[in-house]
């Protein structure tokens, strides 16, 4: 952990202009008014112990309603979940990470709508400090089976505030948010499942590697990012025919599955590299690693790639 914070400290002191187009966290900056953007996200990791590939993808459209208000809508899909909880819950909660367990289908997981409002904007020469609030709501179509919630995996609402500071050589963004998942109900089987409420903090640093000086908009930008994601969430609860369903019986089965149903706190780090082409298109790739406990939303290492393109206005 100390090693990672040391790396973060280096980021603070390196002599280059910083960037705040973070691959994971939302900066407090907003989309330009009237400018749409599209973002593709892909994540991959191997399930343990089965070693089966788990893939996640999302498409997000963003639009600047005003210079201070950005709307977003996303659709996500993956092979992380079954279509519904199986009738044999005991077998599911003991074995669903085993190779012999049925493969999850690829399916649409959820729809997410978000609004970000920038309420403070203090600009200076090549510096700014911005603060924003962000709200999101998600409708999920699948049964998420872990305590840690995620928008799209869960029908949920999310609220956060964001502060982003950029002073030439230094850019940092802090996000503090709350995610409240709703209860998933399968009335035909009499099941309900609720992931825990989640509090999260993200701390993101950015660093522009090249170019040192711009000569045109077509200069390739290479940016390095280091993002710390911390979350604390409550345990999952489940009922069968209205009666509480205890996960304690799985304590000695698959430890990972059992832990994923319990309350947790973790911090992971996501180093990543970003290429910006023609000042309009961002391509990012990175990896997530745990530094304090771990997230049970995914296994490690988790690799991610995203592409973001803005459609700026044409000359009249």
């Amino acid at each position: 952990m100390i090693r990672f914070f040391f790396i973060a400290l280096i980021f603070w002191t390196l002599s280059a202009k910083a960037q705040e187009l973070y691959p994971y966290a939302e900066a407090a900056s907003t989309q330009p008014k009237g400018v749409p953007g599209i973002r593709f996200t892909y994540e991959n990791y191997k399930e343990i112990p089965s070693q089966r590939a788990r893939n996640y993808g999302g498409v997000r459209l963003v639009y600047g309603i005003t210079e201070n208000l950005t709307a977003g809508i996303s659709i996500t899909g993956s092979n992380h979940h079954l279509k519904k909880f199986p009738a044999d819950l005991s077998y599911f909660f003991q074995k669903h990470h085993q190779k012999g367990f049925q493969q999850n289908p690829y399916q649409v997981e959820g729809l997410i709508a978000s609004l970000k409002y920038k309420f403070l904007n203090l600009d200076g020469h090549q510096r700014h400090f911005r603060m924003a609030v962000m709200g999101a709501a998600a409708k999920s179509f699948i049964p998420h089976d872990g305590a840690e919630p995620r928008l799209g995996d869960n029908s949920a609402i999310d609220g956060s505030w964001i502060a982003t500071l950029l002073i030439k050589r230094f850019a940092v963004s802090l996000t503090n948010g709350y995610l409240f998942p709703f209860k998933y109900k399968d009335e035909s089987q009499g099941y309900s499942f609720k992931s825990g409420n989640c509090r999260y903090v993200n701390l993101s640093f950015g660093y522009r590697l090249i170019p040192n000086a711009y000569s045109s908009y077509s200069n390739l930008n290479v940016n390095l990012y280091l993002e710390f994601i911390s979350a604390n969430y409550d345990k999952a609860t489940m009922t069968v025919n209205g009666q509480p369903y205890s996960f304690d019986i799985y304590q000695n089965a698959d430890k990972y599955i059992y832990n994923s149903l319990q309350a947790g706190t973790y911090t992971e780090v996501r180093p990543s590299i970003q290429l910006i082409f023609y000042s309009t298109t961002r391509v990012e790739m990175g990896v997530a690693s745990p530094i304090f406990n771990q997230s049970y939303l995914h296994f490690y290492p988790m690799y991610f790639v995203s592409i973001h393109k803005n459609f700026f206005k044409a000359k009249k």
Partner: peptide, 14 residues
């Protein structure tokens, strides 16, 4: 004021 990257500058110029 507030500009730091070419993507931001491009937004202003367009």
């Amino acid at each position: 004021s507030g500009l730091t990257c070419s993507m931001c500058s491009y937004a202003v110029q367009t």
